Computed example of a mutant assay.
Amino acid sequence: MKSRRYVVYDVFTSEVLTGNPLAVLLDCDGLDTAAMQRIAREFNLSESTFVLPPEDPRHRARVRIFTPDYEMPFAGHPTVGTAIALAEQSGSNAPSIFVLEENIGPVRCAVGHSGGTAFAEFSLAQLPQSPSFSADAGAVAAALGLGPHEIGFENHRISYWTAGVPYVAVPVSGLEVAGKVRFDNAAWMEISPAKSGSAVASAYVYCRETVHHDSAFHARMFVPGNPSYEDPATGSAVAAFAGAIAHFDKPVDGASQYWIEQGMEMGRPSRIRLEIDMAKGAIAAARIGGQAVKVAEGVLFA
Rank of each mutant, 00 (worst) to 15 (best):
Y206T: 05
E261Q: 14
P251Q: 11
I288G: 08
R60I: 05
G30Y: 08
A187P: 00
A137P: 08
G115W: 14
F12A: 14
N226T: 14
F153M: 08
S14K: 15
P193M: 09
H149F: 09
A94V: 15
N20H: 07
H59I: 08
T18G: 05
A199T: 03
R271M: 04
H113Y: 15
P171A: 10
Y6Q: 05
S48M: 05
A120Y: 03
A83K: 05
N44K: 07
H149P: 00
T67S: 13
Y167C: 04
S198F: 03
V24E: 04
D277R: 15
V293Y: 02
L274H: 01
I97Y: 07
E121W: 02
V223C: 15
H218D: 06
A141E: 07
P73H: 11
Q291L: 07
S159H: 01
A239Q: 09
F301I: 05
R108V: 11
I65P: 09
R273A: 14
Q89E: 07
A137H: 00
F12I: 00
S14Y: 13
P128T: 15
S202H: 05
V295H: 01
A282E: 12
I104A: 02
G197C: 12
S256D: 11
A255M: 13
F98D: 00
A282Q: 14
A142L: 07
D231P: 01
D32N: 04
G289N: 07
A187I: 01
A199E: 04
Q262N: 13
M1A: 00
P232H: 09
V200E: 09
T33V: 11
N155W: 06
A75V: 06
G164P: 13
L31Q: 07
A61L: 04
Y9A: 05
E154R: 10
Y258W: 01
A143S: 10
E275Q: 12
A239L: 07
Q262S: 03
A135T: 06
A199V: 06
V168D: 04
I151A: 03
V223E: 02
E209A: 14
A118S: 14
M278K: 15
A216W: 11
S14Q: 06
I283S: 12
Y9C: 13
A118Y: 08
I288S: 01
E15F: 11
G152H: 00
S123D: 08
G290F: 11
F133D: 12
P73T: 02
N226S: 12
G174P: 05
L127W: 04
Q257W: 07
V181A: 03
N93G: 11
V99N: 03
G116E: 12
P54C: 09
S92A: 15
F183M: 08
S256G: 12
G243C: 10
R157Q: 07
A240H: 05
L146N: 00
E275W: 06
S114C: 15
A186F: 02
Y229A: 13
V111Y: 02
V252R: 13
F122L: 12
V16W: 06
Q257K: 13
V165E: 06
V299D: 06
L100D: 03
K280P: 01
